[in-house]
Design a binder for these strands. Structure first.
Lengths: 198, 198, 198, 198
DNA sequence: GATGAATGAGTCTTCATTCAT
DNA sequence: AATGAATGAAGACTCATTCAT
């Protein structure tokens, strides 16, 4: 009995989050009304509040789900037994981001901009993001250290700063793609290679 | 009469934009109410509507003013007779962004995130940003070509892609600073240097 | 089957009324939601509606049960073969009210205030109360007549008005106890005695 | 300029309170909706919120205004140079309550029941009432002491308990009037006289 | 010309009750 | 017979904007 209920609950929540993403994509987080999410989800107002305590909960759940989903998608890239070089890693990461973000009805990259904005004024969101991105940057730092061990990068370079640079490139890829629309993974990789990032 | 009025008008508008920035910084664009801007500006509701047609106009004017102000601030860096290398240029640009963004009562970097988010759903804003950033990227491309002429970068590299990479780094600097809070111009420059970006 | 069902039904209804009293005590009648009563009773929403047709029925049943219960409790006081004087009767009645009203989790005196308020806008409740209190006042009037026969009170006094006064004292005992919290049966009896009510 | 505004504000607030009383009379405090008060006041929803921060503020203001108004009305009775006896005082006080409570469109006695009920779950209201009624009871106690000085009441009687009894009679007058509808000041006075309260 | 009072369309959320399983 | 999921209508309150003075 609880099994059915738990599965049902998870399904409904996923259904609602999908509706929320479609709305957030078009309207942004704040300008999206509960009525819009409700209509997009196909549920009634009261059914919706059975699965999420309020708008804020939906926002946090939507952001959390996308951060978690993306992290799961990027993880295997770091686990690849054949370690990529700098430009190749950036290309694979941005490629995975792009692939993960493209959904029918919305793009999570655009929603990411909305989420970053919202996180500036929403404490729960800010903390959530900080933890996720900090963990991801630690992952990047480990990889830089490995590159240094392999001799690809000068051993004396500050690994944390290289990770900062790479994370900036990834963030910037999302922003540039959303605003100018022409930042491809391949282009960034070529640019990085030209600068010497082998 | 029109002259005094024009100066007076510009002053009032600047006063309103400053109030708007303070509000946008704390609440984001959508969640800021006209009442808040009115209270922060010290004007009356009707006075406000004398200087801006509505909330949308204030938003566009606020973003436009900050984009223009930043461009003016970054321009001299490109005009420097002693041309900087890649890492040095990034350090000077991010440093200038940081200096420009720091204001009493708000930081324009945080507001930039709000503006990017808002631009995803506001056609006027989207167009405005696209033009500004495209122009800025052309400026970066010119600089890359010059580096190629100077032999700092391989002549065969696609200049546009290098510019894309550099613009990503700048965007990412803003995002990383706003969310993780520890992306300094010097750190990014060190990271870039470590990758070979001389 | 019907017998068991009837006993079961009565038990369930009592369980629900107890839950309702606990809720009414904390929140008042109108501000109590069915969901709260349901949660407090430990039943399911649909089970609840099997035993009571709706919120209004619960309200009427709860008030009716407490009026009936109180009447049963007060009845023996009137039947006492050793007839008390005025002050003693008031002390015994208020004492019985106090004892009857004190329950684990709620006090019926507080709920009485909610019930009187609700009766001002609920026709069924108003009628119910009117009948109960009118009957009780008739009982008081009889007692006054007996006192007059015994010579405790002037024979020419209007018995109904004395009953009105005594009922006021009882109502006021409940109100003063609920609001100021320090109206004890003994205090009222002393006060009455001081005024000459032997 | 502030004068007009202040007068205007006070007028609007009085207008709103009158509307609130009419609604509370018919529906009780909790069951009255803001929409009803708004409709009864003739203002718009947003205009209403200019003068009261919310429903709770209206409730507190309405109760406070009636308590204060009643106190002002009862005060002169205590100041009368020809001091009344017990029954006469009760008759004059209940008479004044009745006269004060009768308004076109509503009766404040009925609203008092609603207010007492609401005070059981509203901390602000509870405190407000406690202070008002405690002060009033102190006034009654003073009067009892004077009666004792005059020899109308036994000097050894506990004045505070007599005041408790009298306050109960007044509270009970309101309850009995609202529920049974036939508790007149004269009837209570006669009842009290019959008991010896000269 | 300048103000603050006013507004109607919305915003999030909750409620008593019912229905499919 | 019993449940928990579902609902439509309403609840309190807010917003960008305008208008009478």
């Amino acid at each position: 009995m609880p099994k059915i209920s738990a599965a049902h609950r998870a399904m409904r929540q996923a259904q609602i989050l999908d509706a929320a993403w479609r709305c957030f994509y078009r309207e942004g987080v704040q300008a999206t009304t509960m009525e819009q999410i409700i209509a997009a989800s196909g549920l009634s107002a009261s059914a919706m509040y059975r699965y999420f305590a309020g708008k804020d909960d939906i926002i946090v759940a939507a952001v959390s789900a996308s951060l978690t989903g993306l992290a799961q998608r990027l993880e295997p890239i770091f686990d690849d037994p054949v370690p990529a070089g700098v430009a190749a890693l950036v290309q694979r990461l941005t490629g995975a981001i792009e692939a993960f973000a493209a959904r029918p009805g919305y793009k999570l990259t655009t929603i990411a901009l909305h989420g970053w904005s919202e996180a500036q004024r929403n404490e729960r969101l800010r903390r959530l993001m900080r933890e996720h991105y900090a963990a991801f940057r630690r992952r990047l730092t480990q990889r830089v250290r490995r590159w240094q061990a392999e001799g690809r990068i000068a051993a004396g370079a500050p690994a944390g700063d290289v990770a900062r640079l790479l994370l900036s490139v990834l963030f910037g890829f999302v922003v540039q793609g959303a605003i100018l629309g022409d930042a491809s993974p391949a282009a960034l990789a070529r640019g990085l290679e030209a600068l010497g990032g082998r």
